[in-house]
Write a protein that binds this DNA or RNA. Structure first.
Length: 384
DNA sequence: AAGTCGTGGAA
DNA sequence: TTTCCAAGACT
């Protein structure tokens, strides 16, 4: 095909080898000692990579230790129930990961651990990044694992323009990453192990080439870093445009069951599909779940909530507002019997509760629907 | 392609 | 207080 074949599209071999040498040296000196780097067990590496998806090392670390202590291999996790699998993920977020990993563990225990990027990619929950990461770290396959860190490092080092969500940007980064992993693991002297190379790139992004306030003074690549040399470190990579907030209408209501407990239900349509919330609208930013529920319940319905009933909660992000929501029954003061325990429920599971049925029940019990309220929400720019 | 899914921490 | 967004995958 015609078009993009300019010299800038490829990394000169010598240049790449120099970059690789400097980065690998830096990595050996500055790498963090992390438990999943201490032993090369594929299962643990897989678990760590899945846990690290959109999650910081510091947040993931304690969960990781507990998880691998309880499920030291794929077989043990496969034997757990689906509920246990999700519960073991409690507090980590993105609970779909837990279900997918559970299924993957089943496949692994039946068919063996895939030892290639392509084989790993076929497992549920294993995308392009995770497949490459596990293949390179656990099995030494020379494939580039491109995550947010790598995109940022390469965008700055090579001056890659354009918003990071653009196809052209991703393509260019992919080219660079593919060429570099080849050079670093084959052409460079000494050749780096594929897993070390990928982790070095990511570690640099995590410790030095950070999104905000990068530590360029300590960067092994600054001598040839386009962004640094041109004083554009803060501008690269370009962020995708943010959507404008729009008003949406929410149908809300209140349900009380026979024991006087309050059930909060969700609205039905996009863009906040699946959102459960307090009657009357979203919680205030920064409010604790209990405080918000207490406030709304008292203000709107004169209910006094009893203390002592634990309420697991979920937060939903809409224009980065935290909306605290309650998919559970809450205990109401005066109720006899034990306080209601919040059953631990993952958002995936909540999605299967038919909103229509809940709304119907709400109307039957509460008598009428509360008036719609306005709420900021994310919508694609041109939708009314 | 654009929307969705969670949580915690930093600035 | 508000915004950003972190070792993404999936639809």
């Amino acid at each position: 095909m015609l078009g993009n074949f300019s010299a800038s599209a490829s990394v000169p071999r010598r240049d790449g080898a120099r970059l690789a040498r400097a980065l690998v040296r830096w990595f050996h000196e500055h790498r963090r000692r992390l438990p999943f780097r201490e032993d090369p067990d594929p299962w643990r590496i897989l678990v760590s990579e899945v846990m690290l998806q959109q999650t910081r090392v510091e947040a993931m670390l304690p969960r990781y230790r507990g998880f691998v202590a309880r499920f030291p291999d794929a077989g043990s996790f496969a034997e757990a129930s689906a509920d246990e699998a999700v519960a073991s993920w409690s507090g980590l977020g993105y609970y779909r990961r837990a279900r997918a990993l559970h299924r993957a563990a089943g496949e692994i225990s039946r068919q063996g651990f895939p030892r290639t990027e392509a084989g790993l990619r076929a497992l549920p929950g294993i995308g392009p990044y995770t497949a490459a990461a596990v293949a390179s770290i656990a099995f030494g396959e020379p494939v580039a694992a491109v995550d947010g860190n790598v995109r940022r490092v390469l965008a700055r080092r090579f001056g890659v323009e354009g918003p990071t969500d653009r196809a052209s940007f991703r393509r260019r980064i992919r080219e660079l990453a593919d060429q570099l992993v080849r050079i670093a693991t084959q052409g460079a002297d000494p050749a780096a192990a594929p897993g070390d190379w990928n982790q070095a790139l990511m570690e640099l992004g995590a410790l030095v080439c950070t999104p905000a306030a990068p530590r360029c003074a300590g960067c092994p690549l600054r001598g040839r870093c386009v962004a640094f040399l041109e004083g554009r470190v803060a501008e690269l990579p370009e962020r995708p445009e943010r959507r404008a907030p729009v008003a949406v209408r929410l149908a809300t209501g209140l349900v009380r069951d026979r024991r006087g407990r309050v059930l909060l239900f969700r609205r039905r349509r996009s863009p906040m599909r699946g959102l459960y919330e307090l009657p009357g609208g979203p919680c205030r930013v920064g409010e604790t779940p209990r405080k918000a529920l207490t406030r709304e319940a008292r203000a709107r319905y004169g209910l006094v909530l009893s203390p002592g009933s634990a309420l697991p909660s979920f937060r939903h992000t809409v224009m980065d507002q935290r909306l605290t929501v309650y998919p559970f029954f809450a205990a109401v003061a005066g109720e006899r019997g034990p306080p209601v325990r919040g059953r631990w429920t993952a958002p995936d599971e909540l999605d299967r509760i038919p909103a229509g049925a809940i709304l119907k029940k709400a109307l039957a019990i509460a008598g009428s629907e509360s008036p719609p309220v306005d709420c900021r929400a994310l919508m694609s720019g041109n939708t009314p």
